[in-house]
């Protein structure tokens, strides 16, 4: 149906979703699974950003850190403390995994804020893979560590006995909704912010509204910077929470 609302009379052209289209970078062929697309480009750029921050930035191994190195160390300490505080000391073995997710999401989110860029994390395909990865990892860890007693996660022994089956159903549903909310939260936040910016940008076509529109874009952009970080933080911290459930299911 209508992917764009085009009203020729006022000169307003809304293409809020066009920024999310996956296109081949070279040529005009179909998007096959190995085609080098703008997804590839911006994911590669986020890899470059991670490498610049955490590898090149710390290459001097300075005792008194430079600016880049201290940002890298800050990110390391931030995630490390988060894993330790939320998931517990025995979860520190999974720290590189969570750090990978966090750094990728942060870099992809911030790169998505560059004008004319492509936000890889705004795609449900991307976030769903990450969320399913977390879900499967956590579930497998739970079963490997605790065997079938992992299922006691759903059997709340502190609740009165008649309530327990009902609670178990609710717990199981909420357990399986986790990857859905986990992925849609991130994708939806990124998509919403970028779409809103695009809508306001389209309003700038009217000269009278243009200053207001630019002001609104600025404000939304500032909010988006905040959201970019907070969503990465939330994704990582929820991963830690799920990990804690898997490691210590008896609550």
């Amino acid at each position: 149906m209508a992917s764009e609302v085009n009203s020729e009379e006022t000169g307003l052209v809304f293409h809020p979703m066009d920024q999310f289209i996956v296109e081949p970078l070279f040529g005009d062929g179909p998007v096959l699974w190995y085609t080098i697309t703008n997804v590839t480009l911006w994911m590669a750029l986020s890899v470059v950003a991670v490498v610049l921050l955490l590898v090149v930035g710390t290459s001097r191994r300075a005792i008194v850190p430079s600016r880049t190195q201290s940002i890298g160390e800050l990110a390391y300490g931030f995630v490390y403390k988060m894993v330790e505080d939320v998931a517990g000391k025995d979860a520190l073995g999974y720290f590189p995994y969570i750090m990978t997710l966090f750094m990728f999401i942060v870099c992809a989110n911030f790169l998505g804020l560059v004008p004319m860029s492509f936000t890889t994390t705004s795609h449900i395909a991307v976030t769903a893979v990450m969320a399913m990865g977390v879900f499967l990892t956590v579930t497998l860890i739970g079963f490997f560590k605790h065997g079938f007693s992992f299922l006691s996660l759903f059997w709340i022994s502190s609740a009165p006995l008649p309530l327990r089956p009902i609670l178990a159903v609710i717990e199981i549903i909420s357990y399986f909704v986790r990857p859905v909310s986990h992925s849609i939260r991130l994708a939806g936040n990124m998509m919403a912010g970028h779409a809103v910016i695009k809508v306001f940008a389209a309003f700038a076509g009217i000269a009278v509204i243009a200053p207001l529109s630019v002001l609104a874009i600025t404000a939304i952009y500032a909010l988006e910077i905040l959201v970019s970080f907070i969503q990465a933080y939330v994704f990582a911290i929820l991963t830690c929470v799920y990990l804690k459930d898997a490691l210590h299911p008896h609550h």
Partner: peptide, 26 residues
């Protein structure tokens, strides 16, 4: 575009590559 299933394979493939690369580097 998020519901354009024809691009899912592409995105998932490159996402996995990216995550593996970042994981190895980190």
């Amino acid at each position: 575009p998020q519901l354009d299933f024809s691009s899912f394979g592409n995105q998932i493939f490159w996402l996995v590559v990216t995550l593996v690369v970042i994981y190895v580097i980190l």
